[in-house]
């Protein structure tokens, strides 16, 4: 038990994130990682491939087409993994609530650890969320990824309702 706590503590000091540029929010990511806010001070670093990432940052609205890839990317990430949804759109659709091509709630499809509300959230808000996630990881509270195992039927049902029964088999680029 003590060992797990120690690992949690170290993990919280080194979180690599994958910024899938799904929407507008991606524009506030560069200031967060570059000179002004420099999130690397806290050991949080952008990574290019899902295999190497701990945090999955969903930066904005999700169209149907993107959501498929997001689910794929999420499933490729090694566990434990944390999802931060950025902006109003993944929470309730935001300004695109009545669009025919964007989804209104992200947590119907994959579990989310933290939401950053706002359109668009400032870089400080992103920093705040990352530090909050760091705290959660340190205390062992960021467990949303376990939900994906426990409630996979629920998520799978929603995914199939949107993309069709055998979407995984037929997906290409």
């Amino acid at each position: 038990m003590e060992w797990a706590r120690l690992i949690d503590k170290v993990t919280s000091k080194s979180l690599w994130m994958m910024m899938y540029c799904t929407g507008c929010g991606a524009i506030e990511m560069p200031p967060t990682v570059t000179s002004r806010w420099d999130v690397e001070r806290f050991g949080i670093m952008p990574m290019a491939t899902p295999r190497q990432a701990d945090i999955f940052l969903i930066t904005g609205y999700l169209t149907k087409k993107t959501l498929k890839r997001v689910i794929y990317v999420y499933e490729q990430m090694p566990e434990p993994k944390y999802v931060i949804a950025h902006g109003s759109c993944p929470i309730d659709g935001g300004i695109y609530y009545d669009s025919y091509n964007t989804i209104n709630r992200l947590d119907l499809f994959i579990p989310v650890d933290l939401y950053i509300q706002g359109c668009m959230p400032r870089a400080e808000a992103v920093m705040d969320a990352l530090l909050k996630l760091r705290e959660m990881v340190e205390k062992g509270e960021a467990n949303a990824w376990q939900k994906y195992h426990e409630n996979f039927e629920y998520y799978d049902k929603n995914q199939k309702a949107l993309f069709g029964e055998n979407w995984r088999a037929v997906m290409t680029l």
Partner: peptide
């Protein structure tokens, strides 16, 4: 293309003239 398709042109037909000012920068 199409990963970012939000149906903007449809949305703009559903918003008032002034509301669209808040929509277009996106």
């Amino acid at each position: 293309p199409g990963y970012l398709h939000r149906g903007f042109e449809k949305l703009m037909e559903r918003r008032q003239w002034l509301n669209n000012v808040a929509l277009v920068p996106r």
